[in-house]
Design a protein around this nucleic acid. Structure first.
Lengths: 355, 355
DNA sequence: CACGATTGCTCAATCGATTGAGCGCTCAAA
DNA sequence: TTTGAGCGCTCAATCGATTGAGCAATCGTG
């Protein structure tokens, strides 16, 4: 049984296709109520669904938006981003067309042409982690950059507010009373923009609190993994007791997991002896640690929504041309406490406890 | 600058649009080489990309396939599944339209109509974990079920071969010399089909090896998490030494992570004192454990490809109407070793070591 | 009652491609 | 020279909807 066309509905209702079209699209100002009812009944009885392809050809609007990204599969955050984009698209009656370029520029160019050929109403160019990208040639005007910013500007973009997130993370620790706060980072060549921004936030809060930043407390792991975090933490724990941090802010949850391991090996209890804050709120890591990790969440779902809404024109991007900075929520769990009551000052150091 | 149409190319090449169409589609049997060249040059010079919407209307084939699923975001496997589907679609010149129904039947019905309206060439109905689903009304014939099977049959489907995976996992342990092998499962009400199948595989291999299954070695955690696994493992470790397992097969990697924790708390070394095999190959869990977990991988990428290829008609589903069982690869890491040399037989038990 | 305005609906062009039928030409065979 | 076949290309219909223009009937007004 072939799908019903508008002409089938028209025949069933005894009117022209024009009338059916007008009724189906709610342009009923000049259609009598009786006719409207007949059309609607006819449509229902033949099971009519408008053919979007034909409509798209005529109206030049397809109610689809294209999302092109380099790696859909790699990160657990990708799904949340897609979910946000998809939800927003659906709420506005649009469909999401997804293309993964596997990071290959040829595939990317091909995808761009395919999406243009599909007459998508909007385009989103997504990365799966916050970075600066070179906008490919042929990107339509108004393409929204998601979790990345175009090197040359000129496009709306949304990225996590990593700097504010870094501030929040460190503020959590300062407010708990910590003064010696380390930052566990990634080694230079690998270091992503997110890390630089989080580190800036870290420095800002230290400055606010009147704490002199100690370069020795900025340590790096070779890779973004538990192993990387463990190695970096080991450096910290090897420091003389009076210089050792009482709290550690980690670039991400995976590295924080490594810090946990290192701490346990030294017999340090979290949060009694050491407070830790992570970043990303990576469920399988942060939630499964013991004690559960306090962290800063990456707002992927919200960013996905934002990008779609801007692509559809139902939301305005910042008018200064800068990327929109999506706030990163604080996720309080159990890895932050006050610093150890007796500060570790074994060899003639001045006690850190305030009067 | 508006997009070039076929008529622009025709004008530039001095031919009719028919000729351009024939050349662009490679139906050049009756077109002179000289004309072909002129057309191709003209197309390149005006930057012509065929309008898929118009073509779709005419040919009734849109080169898109719809993927409708209940939860895109929830599992880390979803991305791999989408990646597989998307890669296969791209290789065959198709685009993937993605819809997440959020598990809502109304949204699902609406999505089905929207995709039908888009004239998708194929449809995939995906779940994010292996289960039996009720096929919604209005699903087009030939819809492929991905990671789920329709309760009533009648559609091609692909699911992981959990039974074979269970066999492989347990065989790994039997071949290492273990005879007392536990299965850490989920509690009844939560237990998914995957677990039942993996347990069947477990029993089959025990039978093959002539090992009498001990019901006491089939223990359950309340939830699919490290906490659930830890609780279940604790039961096992509380058993008298001569009945205690020397190896544990876990329903999934997360529960295996809990078994690790329980083992460490009892001072058991993995794999010296206890061998463990997981399931899922969940990178963030299996790869980060110490030692890295030997496990059975879920073939989500491959299943995504399979579903797309069947939906596009480039691959045939099994002709017996049963779901295709996708093999689950064995991922050997470091959590399996021989059983402890001196079997734990403290109180008059018979030594298990063979002559 | 005549005339214009309003109401309720239809006509036909249009979006941009594809494709079966067909046209005019050349060439070979009869 | 006529006929037929083959070649190279074009004509025009078509896919299924939307939409500006327009037509016939009715209504209100002077």
């Amino acid at each position: 049984m072939a799908r019903a066309r508008i002409s089938d509905v028209a025949a069933a209702a005894g009117v022209s296709t024009s009338t059916v079209s007008l009724v189906m699209n709610g342009r009923v100002a000049r259609i009598s109520p009786a006719t409207q009812d007949r059309v609607r009944e006819a449509a229902a009885s033949v099971g009519y669904t408008p053919n979007s392809v034909a409509r798209g050809l005529r109206t030049q609007r397809t109610r689809t938006i294209g999302l092109i990204s380099d790696q859909i599969a790699t990160t657990p955050f990708a799904g949340r981003m897609l979910a946000g984009a998809q939800d927003a698209a659906r709420e506005h009656g649009h469909l999401l067309i997804l293309v993964d370029t596997v990071g290959d520029p040829d595939v990317e160019a091909e995808a761009l042409r395919a999406l243009a050929g599909q007459q998508v109403d909007g385009m989103i160019y997504a990365a799966m982690w916050h970075r600066v990208v070179q906008a490919p040639a042929g990107l339509p005007d108004g393409t929204v950059f998601l979790d990345c910013r175009p090197a040359a500007g000129g496009f709306p973009a949304v990225v996590p507010d990593d700097r504010a997130g870094g501030r929040d993370a460190v503020r959590l620790l300062v407010e708990a009373g910590h003064r010696r706060i380390a930052y566990v980072d990634l080694d230079e060549p690998e270091r992503p923009v997110a890390s630089g921004l989080r580190h800036e936030g870290y420095l800002e809060v230290l400055a606010e609190a009147g704490i002199e930043p100690d370069p020795a407390l900025h340590v790096c792991g070779a890779e973004s993994s538990a192993a990387g975090g463990r190695a970096a933490a080991a450096q910290l724990f090897d420091m003389p007791a009076d210089r050792r941090p009482t709290a550690i802010f980690c670039f991400n949850d995976r590295m924080a997991a490594g810090v946990y391991v290192a701490a346990h090996r030294r017999g340090l209890d979290i949060p009694r002896d050491l407070s830790i804050v992570g970043y990303d709120d990576q469920q399988l890591v942060a939630g499964e640690l013991d004690p559960p990790l306090t962290t800063i969440a990456l707002p992927h779902y919200e960013m996905g929504r934002w990008a779609t809404e801007v692509a559809l024109g139902v939301r305005e991007p910042p008018d200064d041309g800068q990327p929109y900075l999506m706030p990163c929520p604080i996720v309080r769990r159990d890895s932050v406490g006050p610093p150890p009551a007796a500060a570790p000052t074994p060899a003639g150091g001045e006690p850190l406890t305030t009067p």
